[in-house]
């Protein structure tokens, strides 16, 4: 069965931890890290495998730190 699978790459140093992406993600895939970046912000990380690459998070991200990939994979 074909399935859509997505992946996000967060530019950790640019993330300001505003959490707007968390509110926009329909699959609760994003959460804030426990670590901080060099500016002291918690940054967005992927916390489960449900991402479909819908790019909602990337659209609302004020700093444009999220890059989205999406592919059809056969399970």
């Amino acid at each position: 069965m074909a399935k859509i699978k997505g992946d996000i790459v967060v530019n950790i140093e640019r993330c300001k931890g505003c959490e707007v992406c968390i509110a926009s993600c329909p699959f609760s895939t994003i959460s804030m890290s426990e670590e901080v970046n060099s500016k002291g912000y918690h940054f967005a990380i992927k916390v489960n495998d449900d991402c479909t690459g819908c790019s909602n998070c990337a659209l609302v991200c004020p700093d444009g730190v999220i890059t989205v990939y999406r592919a059809k994979v056969t399970v």
């Binding site: 992946d7 992927k46 592919a71």
Partner: peptide, 20 residues
């Protein structure tokens, strides 16, 4: 930092959906 749910195999130019 190790990314637990990362899929580096998906990160190819043809799979790119959105970038800054």
């Amino acid at each position: 930092m190790e990314e637990k749910f990362a899929h580096p195999e998906l990160r190819t130019p043809e799979n790119l959906v959105y970038k800054r």
